[in-house]
Amino acid sequence: MIDARGLVKEYGAKLAVDDLSFQVQPGIVTGFLGPNGAGKSTTMRMIIGLDAPTNGTVTVNGKAYGAHTAPLHEVGALLEARSVHTGRSARNHLLALAATTGVGTRRVDQLLDLVGLTDVASKRVGGFSLGMGQRLGIAAALLGDPATLILDEPVNGLDPEGIVWIRNLLKALAREGRTVLVSSHLMSEMALTADHLIVIGRGRLIADVSVAEFTHRASSDLVHLRSPESERLRTLLVGPGVHVTSLSADRLEVLGMLSDRIGDIAAAHSIALHELVPQQASLEQAFMELTRDSLEYQSTTKAPS
C-alpha cells in the first residue's frame, strides 16, 4: 500500500505538487491520471525517494521507501524518463541492478523472457526502440519481486500488441495481491486497465474514485428518446429544470430528468417509446470535465482556509 499525506513539491517558484494525499490499495490496478504537467511523475519520483518532498510524507507499506532494507522487493518502478545506460547491454543492465540486492542470474533471464527481450539481451540498450526500452524497464521493475509496482506511462511507445500485453500484465500483478499504480494521460487506456482512479490536476487531487463511480459522477442527466408521439411527450416532460429539444420529427433530447422517470411518465400516459437511451459521458469526456472544473475552481476562488 502507498500512503501519501500532504505531499508538496516546489521547484523554485513552481508548485508541482500541492498538498496531495491519497492511498493506493493492494490487489487492484490504480490509475494515476492527469493532464501533462499535472505532477504525476513528480509524485512517483517522491514515492521512491528520488525527489524529496518540500512538505508531507509518503510511505510504502508503512515505511519511507529508503528505510526498507530490501527496496527492490518493496517497490519496482518504471519511470517515464529513461533510466538506462545506453552503452550497456540489456542483460548487464538488469544484472547490475539485481546485484545490489542479491538477485541472481536465473531470475534476470526469466524476466528477459517474460518481457520478450531474450533475443536482444546482449545488444546495447542505445539501439533499442522506445517500446523495447519500456519492456526492459518493466523487467527491471520486476527484479525484486516487488509488493508494489509504480509504472509511469508504461504504454508509451508500445505497439498494440505490447499495450495488450501490459494491460494483462498489470491485471495479473494486481490479482496476485500486489499494489499497482499506473500513470497515464489517456483516460481510455485507464478505462480498460484500472479498477480505481486517482485524478490530479495542477498538482492537486481532483478525484479518488472507482472507475465506475468516476464515469457516473461526471455523466450528466442527458437522455435521448424516440417516440411516435414525441410532441405530446414533450409537453408532459417540460418543467422546472428540465429542458427538452427536438432532434428530429420523432426524436427528443431530455436534459435534467432520469430515464427511469421519463419511462414512467410515458407509461402513465400510454405513450409508446421506441428508444430510451441515457447518454453516458465517455470516460474521456468525464476526465476533461473533471480536470477543467478543477482548474476553473482554482483560478476563480480561493481555497477555504
Binding site: I48, G49, L50, Y65, G66, H68, P71, L72, A77, L79, A81, R82, S83, V84, H85, T86, G87, R88, H93, L97, T100, T101, A140
Partner: peptide
C-alpha cells in the same frame, strides 16, 4: 556523470535509496 547523462542514475539510486 555518465549515469546522469543517460538517466541510469535514477535506476541506481532507486535500487540503493540510501
Amino acid at each position: 556523470a555518465g549515469e546522469y547523462s543517460t538517466g541510469m542514475i535514477r535506476a541506481s539510486l532507486g535500487a540503493v535509496p540510501k
